[in-house]
């Protein structure tokens, strides 16, 4: 559904050339839900803008829904739906009008556009708002309208640029319920960017982690976490001597990556932590080590990002200084 080779985009900002995307090679298969996860400024939006024909690549090739983005941008546009970071619907216009306009922009006639708009309004629980001016809607309602707008022509491929940024957790979950239901109903491939770890973890079948314009990891979220971060078992002991003995025992377990001691606490990084925890506790009892507390933490994608880059995704979310891609060449 998406194939890119060596896709690159650089900008000139204050006399310097900034490489926003460096040699992107992507292959996204039809029917999947793929997350593009990375801190702000990682090149997510710039990549998306190239794939949606909003921005010409500096070099490289991209085929989206079977059409080349440079040779046949109109073909790409006909086949994809797009939800940008901003508001798709104009705040001065009415909900239904914007939906019908969008349908007609894709060549539907007035009654087809109207019928399709009615279906989507019902599917996204917006029926009661059809005559409202877009500017009077809440953030969550507005985002649902944006999704309806992006899906008016039942695209094969749906691009979502930070679909839930700025919404409260409830609205975010609600938005995702809708997206995934429609993904199943109309068999749309979904490609979304996010800097919310939970969002990529919960909703994507496959996560690509992007940093400084490159994809640095690409796998299902479970595999990423198991391979690159692992579980963390923490046990509390009575004193430092016990802690040292506990660490010794832990090192003897198979598939343990790392054991660290901090005061009376021993921290064990491992794969299959759920199976190891009872085993470790039994051995410690056999050894006569008193364990006061035991805890198992499953990894997050932030741990994955930390392992890969040495930085926390949460910290680097605001610190990056790449140029705002929003208006570059738009």
């Amino acid at each position: 559904m998406i194939h890119t080779r060596g896709l690159t985009r650089s900008f000139r900002a204050r006399g310097e050339t900034v490489e926003a995307v460096r040699g992107l090679d992507l292959d996204v298969e039809t029917g999947s839900v793929v997350a593009f996860l990375g801190p702000n400024g990682a090149g997510k939006t710039t990549s998306l803008r190239m794939l949606t024909t909003l921005l010409p690549p500096t070099s490289g090739t991209a085929t989206v829904a079977g059409c080349d983005v440079l040779a046949d941008p109109a073909g790409v546009r006909r086949r994809i739906g797009y939800l940008g970071q901003g508001n798709s619907a104009s705040s001065a216009l009415r909900v239904l009008d914007e939906l019908v306009t969008q349908g007609r922009a894709y060549g539907l006639n007035r009654s087809e556009a109207r019928a399709r708009a009615d279906q989507l309004l019902a599917a996204l629980e917006l029926e009661s708002l059809t005559k409202r001016t877009v500017g009077t809607l809440s953030g969550g309602q507005r985002r649902r309208l944006d999704i309806a707008i992006a899906l008016i022509h039942e695209p094969e491929l749906l691009f979502l640029d930070e679909p839930t940024t700025g919404l409260d957790p409830q609205s975010r979950a609600n938005i995702w319920d809708h997206i995934l239901r429609l993904h199943k109903e109309i068999a749309t491939t979904v490609f979304f960017t996010t800097h919310y770890l939970e969002e990529a973890d919960l909703w994507a079948e496959r996560v690509m982690i992007v940093d400084h314009g490159r994809v640095i990891a690409d796998d299902p979220p479970e595999k990423l976490k198991a391979d690159l971060a692992g579980d963390r078992i923490t046990v509390g002991t009575a004193d430092a001597t016990d802690a040292a003995r506990a660490a010794e025992v832990a090192r003897g377990l198979p598939t343990v990556h790392e054991v660290t001691v901090e005061g009376t606490a021993v921290s064990v990084r491992t794969t299959g932590g759920d199976a190891h925890l009872p085993r470790l506790l039994r051995r410690l009892e056999d050894e006569g080590v008193q364990v006061s507390v035991a805890d198992l933490t499953r990894p997050t994608l932030d741990d994955v990002f930390l392992t890969l880059t040495g930085r926390s995704l949460r910290e680097s979310a605001d610190a990056d200084s790449a140029p705002s891609a929003m208006f570059q060449g738009a």
């Binding site: 949606t52 024909t53 909003l54 109109a74 546009r77 006909r78 994809i80 797009y82 940008g84 901003g86 798709s88 619907a89 969008q102 922009a105 894709y106 060549g107 944006d146 707008i149 992006a150 738009a330």
Partner: peptide, 8 residues
Amino acid sequence: ERMLVTPM
């Protein structure tokens, strides 16, 4: 921007 992604 949304209009620009349509084939209009």
